[in-house]
C-alpha cells in the first residue's frame, strides 16, 4: 500500500544575516505519521518548522504540504495546518475559552460548529474546569494543554508542534504523548521538534537527526538503532594503554558474534549480535589474554548512541540555551 505524501521538502535553506541556519535540507513526511525533528538547540529545527508554517520564508529550496507550496500558496497552507508554538504564546489576560473563541473567529468557523469543537477540545485536554479562568493562573502543563487545543481547533490535516513537552513534569508529558498518539490514530499527520531523545524514541514513527542545519540521519528509531550494528558491550580495562589491549582486540575480532570493535578512552567498545553467547565468550577471551577487567557493561542500542554516531557528540551534553 502506498502512503500519501504529506510534506515534501527539497533543498531547503535559510540564511539569517550571516548565520546559515538550515542548509540544503530535504525530507518527506508521509500522511498519518508522527515525524520528529531531533537535535540540540540552535540546530535549525525551529527554523525549518517556521518555514513550514509560513511565518518565515526560505532563502532557497522549496517545501510543499499536500502539494501546496508554503511560499506561493501560504494562505492555502494556513488552512491546512495547526500550530503549537514553543513559547508559551498565551495571553495571560484571556481565559482558555476566550483563546479558542478568538481563533474560531480567525478561522471563520461557523458559530455552532465552533462551540461544539471548543467544548470537545477542552474535554480532550482536560481543561473544562479551568476554561473560564484567566490564563495568568495556569500551570505550565495547563498552558501547554491550551496550546495544543488551540493547534487542534481548525481540525488540521497536519499539526506542527515546537518542543511540545519542554519543561513539563512527567505526568503532563505522558498525557501529551497520549493525545498525539490518539490524533495519529485518527489519521492526522504530526510534525514535531524535540531535543528529548526518549520523546523521539517512544513517540515518533520516524525522525530526522538535525545538527548545525543539516540532516545527519533519517529513519525510524528502530532502524536507526539497528544501523549502529548490534548491541553494545563496553569493557572498562585496568590499563587501557597496555600492549595486551591490542592482543585482546585481535582475539575478540575473531569471535563469531562480534561485529565491530572500537577503542574507547576507558577500554573497548564492542558491537555484538547475540549477546547471550557473546558476553561469556568476551569474558573468557579477556581472562585468557590476561587483561585486567574493571567493568563490563552491556546495553541495547539507544537513540543517544545514534546521535553520537552521527554528530560526534551526545545530546545530553548540550548546555541549556535560550531558544532562538
Amino acid at each position: 500500500m502506498s502512503v500519501a505524501v504529506a510534506i515534501e521538502i527539497k533543498g531547503l535553506g535559510k540564511i539569517y544575516d550571516t548565520v546559515n541556519a538550515v542548509k540544503n535540507l530535504s525530507l518527506t513526511v508521509a500522511q498519518g505519521e508522527i515525524f520528529g525533528l531531533l537535535g540540540p538547540n540552535g540546530a535549525g529545527k525551529s527554523t525549518t518548522l517556521r518555514i513550514l508554517i509560513t511565518t518565515l520564508s526560505p532563502t532557497s529550496g522549496t517545501a510543499t504540504i499536500f502539494g501546496h507550496d508554503v511560499v506561493k500558496e501560504a494562505d492555502t497552507i494556513r488552512r491546512l495546518i495547526g500550530y503549537v508554538p514553543q513559547e508559551r504564546a498565551i495571553d495571560r489576560f484571556l481565559t482558555g475559552r476566550e483563546h479558542l473563541l478568538l481563533l474560531a473567529d480567525l478561522y471563520h468557523l461557523p458559530k455552532n460548529e465552533a462551540l461544539t469543537r471548543i467544548a470537545s477540545l477542552l474535554k480532550l485536554v482536560d481543561l473544562e474546569e479551568h476554561a473560564d479562568r484567566v490564563a495568568k493562573g495556569y500551570s505550565g502543563g495547563m498552558k501547554r494543554k491550551l496550546d495544543i487545543a488551540c493547534g487542534l481547533l481548525p481540525n488540521p490535516k497536519v499539526l506542527f508542534l515546537d518542543e511540545p513537552t519542554l519543561g513539563l513534569d512527567v505526568q503532563s508529558r505522558l498525557n501529551i504523548w497520549q493525545y498525539l498518539r490518539q490524533l495519529r490514530q485518527q489519521g492526522m499527520t504530526i510534525v514535531m521538534t524535540t531535543n528529548y531523545l526518549d520523546e523521539a524514541d517512544q513517540l515518533c514513527d520516524r525522525i530526522a537527526i538535525i545538527d548545525r542545519g543539516e540532516i545527519r540521519a533519517i529513519g525510524s528509531p528502530k532502524d536507526l538503532k539497528a544501523s549502529l550494528g548490534g548491541d553494545g558491550v563496553w569493557l572498562t580495562l585496568g590499563d587501557p594503554h597496555s600492549p595486551l589491549v591490542e592482543t585482546l582486540s585481535t582475539a575478540l575480532k575473531a569471535l563469531p558474534f562480534v561485529r565491530a570493535i572500537r577503542s574507547a578512552p576507558q577500554g573497548l567498545d564492542i558491537r555484538v549480535d547475540a549477546p547471550e553467547k557473546a558476553l561469556p565468550a568476551i569474558l573468557d577471551t579477556t581472562n585468557r589474554v590476561g587483561c585486567r577487567l574493571d567493568g563490563i557493561e552491556y546495553h541495547r542500542p539507544r537513540l543517544d548512541d545514534v546521535f553520537v554516531a552521527h554528530t560526534g557528540r551526545s545530546l545530553k551534553d548540550q548546555p541549556p540555551e535560550p531558544a532562538t
Binding site: 517556521r50 508554517i53 509560513t54 511565518t55 494562505d75 494556513r78 488552512r79 495546518i81 500550530y83 508554538p85 514553543q86 513559547e87 508559551r88 504564546a89 498565551i90 495571553d91 481563533l103 480567525l106 478561522y107 488551540c150 481548525p154
Partner: peptide, 13 residues
C-alpha cells in the same frame, strides 16, 4: 516577543 503574533500569523487571516 512571547510568540502570540506568530500564532496569529500561522492562521489564515
Amino acid at each position: 516577543e512571547n510568540g502570540f503574533l506568530e500564532r496569529l500569523m500561522a492562521t489564515p487571516i
